[in-house]
Design a protein around this nucleic acid. Structure first.
Lengths: 241, 241
DNA sequence: TCATTTTGTACAACAGTGTCGAACAAATTG
DNA sequence: CAATTTGTTCGACACTGTTGTACAAAATGA
């Protein structure tokens, strides 16, 4: 069997573009492929002509929308189904609400939840969209996924982190801690913790968290929840695909 | 500028695989590309080696999972947001529930809804998954989208269509009618109508429908609902992408 | 603002890859 | 089991893709 060189390189280029968090320069791609710039230029021009990549105003290249995000709808639904038991056991263990969300552009999209049975409870409806910088689920993507810091950091409460360097520090702390915390940064009286969920390839696909009213969650309990969420076992994806 | 031939053909092949409803034979692809079979074989082997296509037991080729479905998460969220006004106006006009769903594998996935304000109402929760062959939303995908008939047709009520030829006839009727109907085929006492929602490229991306209790929806009203759903204007997608 | 550096595209020419055609192998059909 | 269709392997030539250089266009820094 013969492997077509230019085709392989073109596909490799698509992978590079997709894996990158930001548009890539021609030089970078040429280096990565191990070819001359002129050659890389032709490869990229061909990808653009075929509608698989785009070139922006700064001459950088990005994958076209048709390349899709890192995950498909099927991936998300499969993830949702395999995280269900974890959500339920967390609610049983804590009595608080559990949520599952995926990353869409610069927001998190709630795709599943299990409600608390207590009368006072948090209700993020499935299908809702929330910002990244002030929710535990969102911060989990900032810390463990490939989400870039959102362009604007809106204020929701007096605790919302709206300065980029403070957010960066919080994200670093989150990474070290192993789970993300939202301490009334999105809505007053609500505290949350969240952890990443990875797919079989090791890419973060979703964030899974617990939310509850601050009156029931003191600092000590918040830490316990964090440890609990982090330690929760999520059934691995079957590699039949 | 030079367009790399083998790369173009490889990308073209990916398009063919993605657009097809079923795995394609090598000969078919070779004809489509206008090259010899041996050449097409090398192209496809390269795609497989790079993880962009798969070859099944019958030697047919299909796009790999990473190619994604026809639509991304962002597409779905954008669709959901642009369909919101339509859902709300339909609920206002009819008093019944409106739902929005996308296709995932062989099921529909509810991504948005607006509830009826009446005490007796239908409640398909967002995030739920339903079969294709016995829901209006699902039948809309069968008739107007590229969904294939599901492998098994389970019975849910005594009205559920479980024979393939009867379902095919129903799908054809749906196409002619312009909207899909579920006449207590999934749950007793619930009738629905649904229509397709298209993206900017003309591919069906979602199904939008109204559901209500049969006691309030006689045949005449069902037709009215169908006409109403079909006539509802959905704000077009902005082509900034 | 103008040098200086970096980055991307265009060009010609050669090497080597991709394409062809045929022969073989493997399914599928009758 | 023969006949037909379909997919893969192989060698060889032609043409495509790669290279290196030259030029243009931004970006950077003074």
């Amino acid at each position: 069997m013969r492997v077509l060189q230019s085709l392989s390189r073109g596909l490799r280029t698509l992978d590079l573009l997709r894996e990158a968090d930001e548009p890539l320069r021609l030089t970078h791609i040429a280096d990565e492929l191990g070819v001359r710039k002129s050659n890389a230029s032709h490869i990229l021009k061909t990808l653009v002509a075929a509608g698989w990549a785009t070139q922006d105003g700064t001459r950088r290249y990005a994958p076209a929308a048709r390349c899709g995000g890192r995950h498909t709808l099927s991936d998300v639904v499969a993830c949702k189904e395999r995280c269900r038991p974890a959500l339920e056991s967390l609610v049983t263990a804590t009595g608080e609400c559990a949520h599952l969300a995926v990353l869409v552009e610069h927001r998190v999209w709630y795709v599943d939840k299990v409600e608390s049975t207590l009368p006072l409870k948090v209700d993020h409806p499935i299908g809702a969209l929330s910002p990244l910088h002030c929710t535990a689920l969102g911060k989990a993507f900032l810390a463990f996924g490939k989400a870039g810091t959102p362009p604007v950091l809106s204020r929701y409460t007096d605790r919302t982190i709206v300065e980029r360097h403070l957010l960066a520090r919080d994200v670093a702390a989150t990474r070290a801690r192993g789970f993300a915390i939202d301490n009334e940064e999105f809505a007053q009286g609500i505290r949350c913790v969240a952890r990443p969920v990875y797919d079989i390839r090791g890419d973060m696909i979703a964030a899974l968290g617990i939310s509850g009213p601050s009156v029931r969650i003191d600092d000590k309990r918040l830490e316990e929840f964090g440890a609990l969420v982090r330690a929760t076992v999520i059934v691995p994806e079957d590699n039949a695909s």
